[in-house]
């Protein structure tokens, strides 16, 4: 079981309020991702849940039990650190066994769980090596293995993939998702990468300056971002924002249109512009269009078009938002409708 409830949890370092009082419930078996720009307090929040930091106020409940002042070891949570935090002087086997040794798990049971973890994580051939002899991805797996064998109420991941190269990151992302499907244990995952958030999460918690901006499933966040921050943060490439007359036409202070929701024509449309850079990815093409008329927030409008579309630098294009795909925001940046 792993239902975690945060009740008015707050954290300040001296004078600085890192996290103002905040409520959040994480259901058992959920894969929750905390996402936000660096310094938004997402790691601090994770460490509060882990018990590695003292809360300044509020209550943390794990499975209905007040764990606010329980030491980390007693909370039944396992954590995977950004630096992996493997014990360099121990073999892989000993690293994985360490939490069980601390909990006085019988040797036979230890061996069983290590074998299981090693099989799941493809580590069987490396059990006698030291962490220093492993690649980044293997170390990552050992860190996860060390978490698995504890059979924790929840897994905590603190930006676990940020030290891996791009290709490996995609692989590990899949493996962690798969692991979650198999174990069905609660997982809390911190990242600054919204792609990781979108691809892995059951529920995304978007944080900015210690405040929860929105909680919801990836699609909810994509389709109905609650405010300008979430709208700009979720989705890649970023949403285009328009203000002034363009927005006023929709009874809003700002309107937003995602790059994939703009129709491109070489003959007619709402906004006329010139293609600046065209990035051809094969499957898609991203166009960065310099508008002539549109009242944009950024200098360019990003458009995502089919990969086969043969548009080049200097071409003149017309852009039109697709029906019903325009997001409207009021003067305070909150979503209208």
């Amino acid at each position: 079981m792993g239902r975690i409830t945060l009740d008015k949890v707050a954290k300040s370092f001296g004078e600085v309020n890192v996290i103002p009082p905040l409520d959040l419930t994480i259901e058992d078996g959920e894969f929750v991702v905390f996402v936000g720009p660096s310094g938004c307090g997402k790691s601090t929040l994770l460490r509060l849940i882990a018990g590695l930091e003292d809360v300044s106020g509020g209550q943390i409940r794990i499975d209905k039990v007040d764990a606010t002042h329980t030491p980390p070891a007693k909370r039944g949570l396992a954590m995977v650190f950004q630096s992996y935090a493997l014990y360099p002087h121990m073999s892989v086997r000993k690293n994985i066994a360490f939490p069980m040794k601390m909990a006085n798990v019988p040797q036979a049971e230890q061996d069983k769980r290590i074998d299981y973890a090693a099989k799941v994580l493809n580590l069987s051939d490396y059990l006698d090596r030291r962490p220093g002899q492993l690649s980044g991805g293997q170390r990552q797996r050992v860190a996860i293995g060390r978490a698995i064998v504890r059979e924790p109420a929840a897994f905590l991941f603190d930006e676990p993939l940020s030290n891996l190269d791009a290709a490996l990151r995609v692989n590990m992302r899949l493996e962690i998702s798969e692991l979650h499907n198999n174990l069905k244990t609660t997982m809390i995952y911190v990242t600054h990468d919204q792609v990781e958030a979108m691809t892995m999460a059951d529920k995304i918690v978007v944080l900015q300056a210690g405040v929860i901006e929105q909680v919801g499933s990836p699609l909810e966040l994509y389709q109905t971002p609650r405010n300008l921050f979430v709208a700009g943060f979720i989705g890649s490439p970023k949403m285009n924002f328009f203000k002034g007359a363009d927005a006023a036409g929709h009874d809003a202070a700002t309107i937003g249109v995602r790059p994939e929701h703009l129709t491109v024509s070489t003959t007619e449309g709402l906004w006329k512009g010139t293609v600046g850079v065209a990035e051809h990815l094969g499957s898609d093409t991203f166009l960065y269009v310099h508008p002539e008329t549109a009242d944009t927030v950024e200098d360019t409008i990003t458009v995502r078009v089919d990969g086969e579309m043969a548009l080049r630098h200097g071409d003149t294009v017309w852009l039109t938002p697709q029906d019903g795909k325009t997001h409207r925001f009021d003067g305070a940046g909150l979503r209208i409708g």
């Binding site: 980390p72 070891a73 650190f81 935090a85 360490f98 601390m102 909990a103 504890r150």
Partner: peptide, 9 residues
């Protein structure tokens, strides 16, 4: 911290 999470006193 990992050791602490792992239940080490």
């Amino acid at each position: 911290e990992a050791a602490r999470m792992d239940g080490a006193s």
